[in-house]
Design a protein around this nucleic acid. Sequence first.
DNA 1: TTCCTTGCAAATCGTTTGCATAATG
DNA 2: CATTATGCAAACGATTTGCAAGGAA
Lengths: 132, 132
Amino acid sequence: MTARKYSRQRELIKEFLMTRKDHPTADVIYQNVRNENPNISLGTVYRNLTLLSEDGEINRLNVGDGTDHFDADTSPHYHFVCTECGSVIDLEMDSIESITSTAAANFDGRIEGHMTYFYGTCQHCTRFHEHS
Amino acid sequence: MTARKYSRQRELIKEFLMTRKDHPTADVIYQNVRNENPNISLGTVYRNLTLLSEDGEINRLNVGDGTDHFDADTSPHYHFVCTECGSVIDLEMDSIESITSTAAANFDGRIEGHMTYFYGTCQHCTRFHEHS
DNA sequence: TTCCTTGCAAATCGTTTGCATAATG
DNA sequence: CATTATGCAAACGATTTGCAAGGAA
């Protein structure tokens, strides 16, 4: 991790991300930040998203849909991914940290953590089905 | 899912995958199957891996390293990913299926499952560090 | 004969990178 | 001044796809 200098672009990206709880992709972030700075480039957005996550200011989410999502909420929590509409939703649930020790029980390496996301049909898409 | 016709290429891919427990990528599968059929194309490998996983004969693994891995063992089990060498290893561990109900407790949609992998340093890489 | 599958190459998608210039410390 | 950050465009790696030809039912 090298030294960091102020950048208005990085600030805008962080600011935008903090207003959203739907875990947008780099491109969605790019489209929105352009409202504030029409000259910003997609490359700059990607570079800053990487810097911000390296610094632990945001999290990069991999939910198996081929594109990374970003989250300004770095507190420990889990996500739900709707297989119908692709939306990524925060889950409020009890800790499942114990699964790490469950996994470590019969393993010879060093387990440092886990990546988990839940999938299914979100409330909106479930209702949509009932009515059709 | 449409009807399926026999294909020697698909058979070779499945056969090769069954001999491996290290969850190879499409390209590794391609390189190896070429020993048996030098004319097979990478596109055919990708197409058949998709067909096989649609049919539930193999599993497509997303372990966050940017490339998909494939597994002929479709029985329920979890994986460990080494952050040093990238190897993907089967874990023998007690069931953690209960995390699905933990997640469902305060959620309004329909949770159908979860995706979990553990990460850290594998036995080999851990030893490498101790000796250096 | 129907239509699934193939090899090939071109295309696509998300992301990264080289470069010359601009901004920060 | 030294160094980090930017915009742009080209490059990238993984995967998908259009197409004309081949093979299975």
